[in-house]
Amino acid sequence: MKNFLWVTLFLLGGSILAQDAEENLPVENLKANVVNAQSDMPLESVHVINLNKVIGTITDAEGEFNINASVNDTLYFTFLGFKPQKIRVTNDMFKFGGTKIALTELAYALEEVVVRPYELTGYLEIDVKNLPVNSAYQYSISGLNKSYEAGNKNPGAVTKVLGAIMNPADLLRNLFGKKPQQMRKLRQMKEDDNIRDLLASKFDRETLTQLLQLTKMDIEDILSNCNYSTSFIQTANDLQILDAISGCYEEYKVLNRR
């Protein structure tokens, strides 16, 4: 029993030391190039995100980028029409330079599709009257600076608002309490212009799942329990989703302190 205890303490201590050593790794400027895997041609405007440091950049006309990183950081590359890719930073990438990251084109088999959601005439005054209006009203709780989306898109919102008033901290603790490290990244993500620009152009939640280490289902559950309608969850871009999660998390922190 005593030997078992010593082994456990030894392994635990080694794990803590390894974690501290990883966190204290020096931050250096990493320079590399992104190319098309099929043609070896440089790719411009590829978004590069350091998932550990929560910072981003884009490649220039030569496919080159510079980003602060440490050994063992994970870089996430995303570009329209190409498969997203994750690369682990190694010592060799700093030591030798000239690293090439090759992205693979996505192959789509598309059939001709004619989409006619609404009968539009081309005249603005007439077409505006024919478009459906999203009547997703919002309810607010005084003092929380938070609105709850409702209307015919989210008929249970009133009940959820009342539940939030009665016990709001418990409602959100189950959502965020299990993911404190990921949630702390929200503010960093919102402050980086390159990450915001990327998220504003995306609707697939792929980058968000990588940054927050959450599944798409986790994201939907968070927004649903924060009283966002199904319409918003399905149609908002990734930046709007980020801001919604961030706002809900800030509310959770205020309520949790109370």
Results as ranks from 00 to 15, higher is better:
Leu75Arg: 04
Val48Pro: 04
Ile101Met: 09
Leu255Met: 11
Leu80Ile: 10
Phe176Arg: 03
Gln240His: 01
Lys100Trp: 05
Asn167Ser: 11
Gly97Glu: 07
Ala21Thr: 13
Thr78Trp: 06
Val7Pro: 00
Ser201Arg: 09
Ser15Pro: 07
Leu211Ile: 08
Asn68Phe: 11
Pro84His: 01
Glu251Gly: 09
Tyr139His: 09
Glu23Asn: 15
Ala244Leu: 04
Ala150Arg: 05
Tyr108Asn: 14
Asn154Met: 06
Val254Ile: 13
Ser15Ala: 15
Phe77Ser: 13
Ser231His: 09
Gly247His: 04
Ser147Cys: 09
Met1Ile: 07
Leu144Trp: 13
Asn91Glu: 12
Leu120Ile: 09
Glu111Gly: 11
Asn29Glu: 10
Val128Thr: 14
Ser224Glu: 07
Leu212Thr: 02
Ile241Tyr: 00
Phe65Ala: 02
Phe176Ala: 05
Leu242Thr: 03
Lys185Asp: 04
Asn33Lys: 15
Gln38Arg: 15
Ile67Leu: 14
Val35Gln: 08
Asn237Lys: 03
Lys2Leu: 13
Phe4Asp: 15
Leu255Gln: 14
Leu75His: 00
Asn72Arg: 04
Tyr137Cys: 04
Ala244Val: 01
Lys185Glu: 01
Asn256Ser: 13
Tyr137Trp: 11
Phe77Asn: 09
Ile16Leu: 15
Ile233Trp: 00
Lys83His: 12
Ala32Phe: 07
Thr59His: 07
Leu255His: 06
Met166Asn: 06
Leu25Thr: 12
Ala102Ser: 15
Arg184Val: 00
Ala18Met: 10
Leu175Asp: 01
Ser39Val: 08
Leu144Ala: 04
Glu191Lys: 06
Asp40Ala: 12
Ser147Glu: 11
Ile219Tyr: 07
Ile126Pro: 02
Thr230Ser: 15
Cys248Phe: 07
Tyr228Cys: 08
Met166Ser: 08
Tyr252Gln: 01
Ala244Gln: 03
Leu186Trp: 01
Thr78Ile: 11
Tyr137Asp: 09
Lys253Arg: 10
Ala107Ser: 15
Val34Glu: 04
Tyr118Cys: 03
Ser224Phe: 08
Gly98Trp: 10
Phe10Ser: 15
Glu251Leu: 14
Arg187Met: 02
Thr215Arg: 05
Ser224His: 01
Ala164Leu: 10
Asn130Ser: 12
Gly163His: 03
Glu105Met: 13
Lys2Met: 06
Glu220Pro: 02
Ser39Asn: 09
Met217Leu: 14
Ile58Cys: 07
Asn134Ile: 15
Val71Tyr: 02
Ala244Lys: 03
Ser45Pro: 00
Gln213Ile: 06
Asp221Ile: 15
Ile245Met: 00
Glu149Met: 14
Phe96His: 14
Ser201Asp: 09
Val34Cys: 05
Val48Lys: 05
Ala18Pro: 00
Asn50Gly: 09
Asn36Val: 00
Ala21Leu: 11
Tyr252Asp: 06
Thr159Ser: 02
Thr8Ala: 15
Pro26Lys: 06
Ala21Asn: 08
Val7Trp: 14
Pro117Ile: 13
Thr207Trp: 03
Pro84Tyr: 06
Asp193Asn: 05
Leu131Gly: 03
Ala150Lys: 05
Glu44Thr: 12
Gln181Lys: 11
Thr8Val: 13
Asp218Trp: 06
Gly122Lys: 06
Phe232Met: 10
Tyr108Trp: 12
Gly98Tyr: 06
Gly156Asp: 08
Ile165Gly: 03
Ile126Ala: 14
Leu198Ala: 05
Leu25Asp: 11
